[in-house]
Amino acid sequence: MTGDDGVVGGHGPTRRIQVTVNGTPRDAEVEPRTLLVYFLREQLGLTGTHIGCDTSNCGACTVQLDGRPVKSCTVFAVQADGRRIRTVEGLEQEGVLSPLQAAFAEAHGLQCGFCTPGMLMTATALVEGERAPGTDAIREALRGNLCRCTGYANIVQAVEAALRGHRPASEPKQSPASLPGR
C-alpha cells in the first residue's frame, strides 16, 4: 500500500495538492479529511471565508470552485486539487471594491456582516454570469445563504444594483432608483 492509504485515528498521512487561490498558485500538504474552509482559513490564513453553521446550511463559507459557488464546509481540500478557488479576498482589485461589494456598501446590504462573504461569492457568480436574473431569480440563487439579521431586502437590492452596472463609488449618492427605500 502506498502512503496515501487510510489510517484511522490520530493524524492520517497528508497529500500534496496544487490549487489556484484568487489567481495565485498554491502548493500545500493537507490531510484528506481537511475541509476546504479550514484549509483556506487555517493553512492559507484567508479568514475572510467564515464558518457559520459548519453543517452545510448557512452558506457563510461559500467560495467559488472553478467559478461555481459551493459551500466550502462540505468539500474536502483534496477535492479542490488542480482547481481554481476564489474567495472574498479575491473580489477587491488593487484596493478598489468590486461593483458588487460597492453596491452592498451603498445599499446597506449588510448588518453584522457575518454572512456577507458567502453572500458576495454567490452573488458575484450571478452578477458575472451570462443571464440577467430578475428579483425572483436573485432570491432563488441566494436560497443557500442565510442572513440571521434578516437583511435580505437590502441584499437583493444590492445585487440588483450591481446587475444594472451601478457603480456607487463613482456616482452621486442619490441618483439610482435602486437605493433601498424606506
Partner: peptide, 11 residues
C-alpha cells in the same frame, strides 16, 4: 466538525 481520518484516492 472534523471527520475521522481516511485515505483518499482519485482514480
Amino acid at each position: 466538525m472534523i471527520p475521522a481520518s481516511f485515505g483518499y484516492r482519485a482514480p
